[in-house]
Design a protein around this nucleic acid. Sequence first.
DNA 1: GAATTCAACGTTAGCGCTAACGTAAGGAGT
DNA 2: ACTCCTTACGTTAGCGCTAACGTTGAATTC
Lengths: 338, 338
Amino acid sequence: MARQSPSIQDVANCVGVSIMTVSRAMRGVEGVSSAKRSEILAAAKALGYRPSRTARSLAASHSTLIGISLPTLFNEVFADILDGMRRTFDTAGFDLVLDNSDYDSHREALWVERMIDWKPAGVVLSGVDHAPEVCEQLRAAGIPTLEIWDQCSNPIDVCVGIDHVAAGCKIGEYLLACGYKAPAFVGVEENRDPRAEKRLAGLRAAFAAKGRGAIPVLRSERHASFEAGMNETRVLLAAGDSRPDCICYLNDHMAFGGMSACEAHGLSVPGDIGIVGFNGLGINAVLPRPLTTLVTPRLLMGTLGARMLLARINGAKVERRSVVPVEMSIGATTRGLL
Amino acid sequence: MARQSPSIQDVANCVGVSIMTVSRAMRGVEGVSSAKRSEILAAAKALGYRPSRTARSLAASHSTLIGISLPTLFNEVFADILDGMRRTFDTAGFDLVLDNSDYDSHREALWVERMIDWKPAGVVLSGVDHAPEVCEQLRAAGIPTLEIWDQCSNPIDVCVGIDHVAAGCKIGEYLLACGYKAPAFVGVEENRDPRAEKRLAGLRAAFAAKGRGAIPVLRSERHASFEAGMNETRVLLAAGDSRPDCICYLNDHMAFGGMSACEAHGLSVPGDIGIVGFNGLGINAVLPRPLTTLVTPRLLMGTLGARMLLARINGAKVERRSVVPVEMSIGATTRGLL
DNA sequence: GAATTCAACGTTAGCGCTAACGTAAGGAGT
DNA sequence: ACTCCTTACGTTAGCGCTAACGTTGAATTC
């Protein structure tokens, strides 16, 4: 059997110094002559000594763990954001503890509570809508916290994201400029995705500003997937009463599924009906007819967010709120501007 | 400012018992009367006491962290696998430390080394091809380890996956049965994805068994994405010399991109050329022409794998190797059986 | 009624580190 | 020569828990 892994004491004995000198040498802290330092490092390597993270965390009363809570990884958006953050945190020597909340703020709250027990160096949450106790606990524990993908004026600590209301508005204004009059929106159940609701609100505001009436909304009870977009669109088209002249989807996945449903229903896109997605995902690059969509800079958010959180961890001053720009990508699923 | 969070001593003082009794009560271990137990739990709640995970890990000389290394999260396959494991581990009270190796075994090795410093309850790796030191270190540390998505007769500890060689073979036999004679394969650079190489080997074996010659292979230097599939297919078709009668792709994403390229090149699918993917991803459900592909049970692997690892952590006996079945899904991108 | 047993606690000794504060030796300044 | 730094270490006291043994009093046994 493998004997216990060597501890700092073993290295100290081996070199003939105190454990404190070994500790300093291992951490690269000042107070050790370069001769001793290299001697210690060599001995550590020879013995196969590796500092215990748990002991270090306990003694230092904080760990090098960073907790990240994302709603799901099936959505490319969050995979992008995570990827953007990963490298930065990895290089800085942090380890990532991941949670998926499934868009359930109660689950998120439970996880945050558990995460705090690790005394993490930082925590990343998706969006700015959380259970009240999450904010309290994080603030009380003084843990640097980043809210990502959405933004607000009063984040728990720092935030980086897009303005979802403005994004919805932007889509609405584009559609109005194209001459669309009766949009519909396809998303998921309320309270599942607060960001999508904000975009819907922005869309409504844009049309309301031009005196247009209510926007019908279809909500899937399932994930915002290809299939869900397809199914809800079928329902929408089957209803028959006053068909919309364009459909805005929660994301590109649903939009693509929805477009299939429209075509299966005998409607030509964009001739009979316009289709608008959200996010500008990779699939658009190869679709014979690229979606009109709104491109969000996920990687940028991830990288920027990671840097902001790192700065907070190091005690530096950072802008509490950072809003990144979005851009309409005019595809072939809406008719052109009038 | 927030004062220090209460420790076990505070709870002990509050109730008037020793810290050991509080420890037992908090962990739900025997040796505490139910009256005292509920008294302690109430006091802990009132004080806002939460046991420190780092202290617990140090004292118990192992943590409740489980390290998971996946090549990427952009591949739906690994997102599925992760999702399958998540719930099981979550329910059992473990926290997941995630790494993305980017298909780089050296990166994986570095991460494993760092992960071991946390004294994790278990480690999950993708595939069965790792740097030699990874296996040594994990075995030496006696950490329960699960290898997932691929399988072999001599795993580090336990493994669950599909037989990639057999999968490639299965595809080859299907193509032969359809009368295809000259397949090509589109993937990524060698050493990037060992599983894909095994499938290619299986495909080659199937054709070699019927006396068919070499299979041309195109390798993208980038990720196995829609775009990569499209680009490599363009290159393949542009080469011109003896066009293949079907193309097998590393995964459905590449296959979908490749199909677009074929059609853009004026080839009809499956009339002029057959297209075969791998994995059976969600997108197939809404494609007007579903891909012929091989469906892999990712969620099952995740769930099963998590259970196996949990059993190992609890010291139970488990089959070291578990092979799950795959199934051809005949879409509309290959011509039917002869 | 003395011995035995057992549930329900308490005590002790770490787990492997780090923060904070010594201390000794050598060099600079006057 | 004497003080005053500075560098390069060492010592001490935990960080907040848990494992492994005590210890106690009451119920049980013969």
